[in-house]
Each structure stands twice: as C-alpha cells, then as structure tokens.
Design a protein around this nucleic acid. Structure first.
Lengths: 353, 353
DNA sequence: CCCGCGTGTTAAACTAGTTGAACGGGAAGC
DNA sequence: GCTTCCCGTTCAACTAGTTTAACACGCGGG
C-alpha cells in the first residue's frame, strides 16, 4: 500500500515523449545536449503533471538530504530566536532544519531524567540521515558517549552555548561571557556599588555558561574595584529560586546590587523584593541577562545584557553549511564568541546611602 | 562523493555471517523463522557496528516518511505552544514534525508579500515527501490554488485557527470563538459595563478568527443587554495600533471597557492609557485574548481569555495521525473547536460612576 | 560515399534496503 | 527409506530516480 506519491519521472517522460534518461538530464539542468524544443516539452510536461523531485531518492544517491537536525529546549524567547536565525540561514541555502525539542516548554529540561527520550530524538534525526546537527549543550554533555557515533558518521555538529574546555570535538557558538560579564560589572561599579551579589542558575555540567558567567563576573567586579562578590546558586532542579532570592535580600548588610545570570533569576528577585517591601532600584539594583521577551515589560523595566540569539543561530547554521561543502570541511573545531549588549533600563541606580 | 553514511546492512550481514535477506528480516522483527542464536548474532553485529535503519529507503518503499510538515508564523508564545503540542503527540507516535516558518519573528507575517518564499517552503516539505501537513491559515488562503496539489497527492492537511465557511477542504482546529467571546461579554456586562468597545486586529482574509471573534463578541454583548458595541480594527499592515487606541480612548463619551481581540492589541491600549493619564481598571477596563506570555506580567496584570494552544497543537497532530492510518482515513473534513478560559486579573473592574 | 555533428536512445549499474518465491541440507519422526 | 520441519540461502523484483557508456539516426559537407 505505498500511497499515491504524485507523478513519477516516468510519467513526465511518457507525456513529453522522451526517454527516462533524457527527462532526468533535462530536469537536472543538463540542457545543452538537447534541443530547445525538447527541453520545453519536458519542462512543460513536468509542470503540467506537478512533478517534483523526490529528495528521498536524491538523499539515498548523494548521501545528502539537505536537512539539518536541530535539538533545543523549547524554553524561552532566547531559544525561539536562535531557531529563527537557523531557519533564515538554512532556508536561503535551500536546506531545511528539522527541530526536535527536549523537555517541556514550561521549564528548563532536566536531561538526566530524559536521557532515553533525548536519545530517541537524536535517533529520529540520524535515521532520517540529516547532513548536520545543531545541538544545545545538554546533549553534548549527557550523551558525550554518543558523540563517537556522530564523528564516525562524519556528521558535522555545532553546539550552542557550550565549549568543551579540554577536548573540543565539535564546533561551538556561544555568548562572549568574559566581555559580557565585564560590561555588567562596569555598569554596577560605575554606579558606585561596592557590595554586589550574584545569583547564578543551576550549575549543572551542561550549563557551563552559568559557571563561566558567574566566575567572569566575580573576577571583573574585583578587578574593577567593586569588592568581593557574594554568590549564590539555585539547586540542581532549579526549584528554590524564591528561597535563595529571600536569602540574598535578607543578608545583613544587604548587598546593594544583584546580578542575576539570566532574566529568569531576576524575576525571583523582583517577586521577593515586592514581598519584602523593597523598592527596585532605590533599595536594590538588579541586572539580568538575555533580554528575554518579558524583560522590557517588567516593572521596573529590567536592565539586562541583550544576547544575540539570532546571530548565534545564524552563525551555527553557517558553520554547518561551511563544514558540509565549504573549504573548512577538514579544519579543526572552532569556537565562535558572539557579543552581547547592555540594555540599561530602570532596575539599576546608585546604591542607597 | 557520497559521504560515509555509516554501516550498511551488508556490513551487518557479513559480520554476523548471514545473508542479506536474513539480516533484513531479523532486524525487522521477523524472528520466528530464525534460530535464537542467529538472531542474537545479527542483533549484536548491528549494535556493535552502530547500524541504523535508513528511513530514506523506508520512505521510498512504503511511501511513508513518518514526517509531518508544519508551517507556522514564529510570532508569539501562542504559536510556540501550538508547536509544543504538535511535537509531543508526534514524538509519541515516532513521527517527526518538520517546521518551516513564514515571516519574521518580530511581527505577524504579511503573506501577500512573501508568496514566493512561502511556496518555496511548502515545496521543501513536499520534496521531502512529508506524510501530512499542519498549516496556519495564511497558506490556506493565500495558496488556495495549491491546495489542489495537496489533495491530489492525498497529503492530509490540518489548518489551525481557520475554518472555511463554504467548501471545507481540510480539517480545521480552532478556538471556540462563540463561547469565548460570550465569556468575555458576560464578564464585562456582569461588572456593569454598558458602553463597550472592541479593538480588532487586522482583518485580512487569512485572519478569519479576528472577524469571528469581533462579531461573536458584538452579538454576545447585545444579547446580554450590554448595549451596542463600538468596534475598531487595525489597518491591513497592523501598523496603526497606537493611533486607533488613542482614537478609542478619546471618544466622548469614552467607552468604559475595551475588548482587544488579542493581547497584542491590549498592549496598545495600555500604552495609550499611560500616555493619556488614564488608570486601568479605574478609568477603563481592558480584556485581552490568548494569555500570551507577557500578559501576566503587564501592570496591571491583564484579564484575558486563555487559549489552549497546546491542546490545539495536540489535536491537530492527532487528526493527521488518524487520517494517516486510523479509521477516519476517508471521512469528510471536520472542524474541532477548542475551548478557552477566562483568566480574571487586575485590568477589569466596575465602570467608573 | 564517408565523416562528423547534433540529438537522442537503450542498457546497465548504483543508492540501501524489503519482500516473495523457490530451494537446499540436516535432523527428527514414522 | 521417506517425509516433514527447521533454518537459512539465493534470486529476482521493487521503491524513484541518476549516471555512464555505447550506440543509432538523419543531415550537411567534403
């Protein structure tokens, strides 16, 4: 029961009254060997029948499906924008991304729990013979072992927001953490803050960016004369945001500014501030990171580092395309660092006297 | 140069020392014809070599790629959640959605402008022989002509948020506009509002929901004794939101409540209210629609109808699966109406005296 | 009359399997 | 000694083309 699959090349050839191979050549663009009239006949026949090239066959023959697998968490607007960048670049190269999502939309996935499900997703991509893969760090770490297979199959892989420090086995595209953290530090120190806290995220192995963002920030503040940063982090499941925020804001002396490593953590600080009757930014300054879609509409509007997710997506896609048929097919893995921009809104001010 | 594609079945057969057809049968699950020891040998060999089924070949042979094309605008959290619902259902059936995006992330696409690009996207899906399609209305209307091809190819199509009134040629999954509009009307009329305005969106042909939402609301308010609704709508490009909002709030007498057909339009009303020094909800009540991710964090928090995008996505995916191998393969197109829930927040109150 | 050129044809091999039919050899049962 | 079963083999056809090689036909020029 192979359902009707549309007209075959054979149908086109018959309608145009030419041989199968002539039809194939003409439709592939090899026109010069044939008369103009014949070409027109074949092209017309194909159009009239609504024939379309079967990319499955093409894929079998050339080993290229013009398809790139993408695995991201469907978590927030950052990832949606990354995806947008990927789509734009791939579409213009006549490639198609196939996206699989790990985890739930409501919360950052816990890859440890979903290992099987995640690997099934990757399998679905490999079974369809994607030409390349763009992955978020979770897979890269949780399935480090499976990377062997990807390398053996020579499927180029780009990992977003995660760099392997020791043995880099795949390309990496990430936010420039050092420069970004320094920009935040400068902003706060310049405002006069000398007692600054940092609220980090879950610092799981596959959240290397969280660790680096915090460490870079701590270092930058100290270098700029802002004193020693007091740092907290969420638990492994990310469930204690409000409690940690309460702990930070209850310190005595209370820090005058808090850097949240993402806008999500900044939200906990906002909620806790309302709870405790503290005014942002009069009593405490808050800086976020990412400029997620809700950051601008928070009250007060959140000062945050705007990442460039679209550029990250674009660069990742371009890297895969270059590896596939560019000159860099064989060059060693690289790391691309994408900048971020400080967006000063209403949540930061000079420290209270 | 057909790049290395991983081990072939031939390699597995050789390693296990069996014939090609035996390997094929065993790996397909036809075990009873073979000895347990032979089966193990083949399975082991496949595992050790990392062999994986080539779905391209499968697709060619069976005419089924276990792949569903999805076309949506990457616009707001509504569509992200629809996508989430689709992914969940398809993943559990071992299908994979391939998503193409039309337009830009920042704004609702204008399909009229991008007709070529949009059709290229659909082509990319059909060229890869997707088994079914889930489309947003834009395509359904702009490319009405191309629907012929989809029907001929017997590719089941589900359209989200758009019902053809005359000749329904595809399945449709949409929000229950009549019930939802009535819920909003009841809420406002019960609060005592008797002079209610409606701010509709662009009412393009492919935004049938906007028209119906407005009309249902007008009718419901009148039936409930809330008087005659005064309605406005955005221009064809959706660029005059603030101007229209200003016009509404400058009316004399000013309506005491405004129903915005989506949360996006509610935003214009909020901005304009600040501009004009009006307090929400003391001076004017505002109701949105969709409960997009920013609705809860607006100040005051927006009262809105929460659509069920995930359910819409799930139902759409399920419908496609049922059409593919269920009993309803041949039944006529249906329309599924999904409910919505009124979320009362802080933007509605009794009308000012 | 033969050569070469422009067109186009046929046949075969190839992508990676899947599937049906026929068949073969050893062992057990009768 | 014959039949039957079990286990497995080989062969061929099939999915939808792509590509190479060899070849054929008619026309114009020499």
């Amino acid at each position: 029961m192979p359902g009707f699959q549309g007209p075959r090349l054979k149908d086109v050839a018959e309608k145009a009254n030419v041989s199968l191979s002539a039809a194939s050549r003409i439709l592939r663009g090899e026109r010069q060997r044939f008369g103009a009239e014949t070409c027109d006949r074949v092209l017309d026949a194909a159009r009239q029948l609504g024939w379309r090239r079967n990319l499955l066959v093409n894929g079998m023959q050339t080993g290229r499906t013009r398809t790139i697998g993408v695995m991201i968490p469907p978590f927030d607007s950052f990832w949606v924008d990354v995806l947008a960048g990927i789509h734009i670049v791939l579409a213009s190269a006549d490639y198609l991304p196939i996206t699989v999502w790990v985890g739930d939309c409501q919360e950052m996935p816990h890859f440890e729990k979903d290992e099987d499900e995640g690997f099934k997703q990757i399998s679905r991509l490999l079974d369809r013979r994607v030409d390349g893969l763009i992955l978020w760090p979770s897979f890269a770490v949780a399935y480090y072992d499976h990377f062997r297979e990807l390398l053996e199959r020579k499927v180029p892989v780009a990992v977003i927001d995660h760099e392997y420090s020791e043995d880099q086995i795949a390309d990496s595209i990430e936010t420039d953490e050092a420069a970004s953290a320094r920009a935040v530090a400068e902003h706060l120190v310049n405002l006069g803050h000398r007692d600054i806290a940092c609220l980090s995220s879950r610092e799981a192995a596959w959240q290397a960016w969280a660790v680096r963002r915090r460490e870079c920030f701590e270092q930058a503040v100290e270098e700029l004369g802002g004193g020693k940063v007091r740092s907290w982090r969420l638990n492994a499941w990310g469930t204690d945001g409000l409690e940690i925020a309460r702990e930070i804001l209850s310190q005595n002396p209370r820090p005058t500014a808090v850097f949240a490593v993402t806008d999500h953590e900044a939200r906990y600080l906002y909620e806790t501030a309302i709870e405790m009757g503290l005014e942002i930014p009069q009593d405490i300054s808050v800086v976020g990171f990412a400029d997620l879609d809700f950051a601008a509409t928070m009250r007060p509007a959140l000062t945050t580092m705007r990442q460039r997710p679209r550029e990250i997506g674009r660069r990742a896609a371009q890297l895969i395309l270059d590896r596939l048929d560019g000159d860099m097919a064989e060059s060693p893995p690289t790391t691309i660092r994408v900048g971020a921009d400080l967006i000063v809104r209403k949540s930061t001010a000079r420290p209270p006297k």
